[in-house]
């Protein structure tokens, strides 16, 4: 393509509902942000519903990943941070003739009028 300016890659993020985070759905080639927004709607929202759309020039994205697996390495057992790390509670509650509580139960209960 002649001229100094060129089409560039834009990363596209879609938010499906206000309670969802924006999710990366792909990328596209555009001359500027307004074209990127237009093409993003055509490419990614022909069916999917959304409440918000972000387009970001790829050059603006800083990232770590791919072959750099060390960055994401779990150096030691982190189960103490997880619900699953306390799975033995269920058995222990049983001894007391009761049972462990889950977050889902609490949410459901609080939502009930």
């Amino acid at each position: 393509m002649e001229g100094v300016k060129e089409y560039g890659a834009y990363e596209v993020f879609v938010q499906r509902t206000h309670q969802d985070a924006h999710v990366h759905v792909g990328s596209l080639l555009a001359s500027d942000v307004s074209m990127a927004i237009l093409l993003a709607r055509e490419n990614f929202l022909r069916r999917d519903e959304a409440v918000s759309l972000w387009v970001v020039p790829r050059t603006a994205v800083a990232s770590v990943g791919g072959e750099d697996v060390d960055f994401f390495a779990r150096e030691f057992d982190r189960s103490y941070r997880e619900v699953s790390g306390y799975a033995d509670n269920a058995l222990r509650w049983k001894e007391f003739k009761s049972r462990a509580l889950s977050l889902d139960e609490v949410i459901e209960d609080v939502r009930k009028p």
Binding site: A9, G26, S27, L28, L29, L39, E42, N43, R46
Partner: peptide, 13 residues
Amino acid sequence: VQDEVGHGQLLLR
């Protein structure tokens, strides 16, 4: 037809 062209764009990317 629009889907096919859209797929073409995603794949060419």
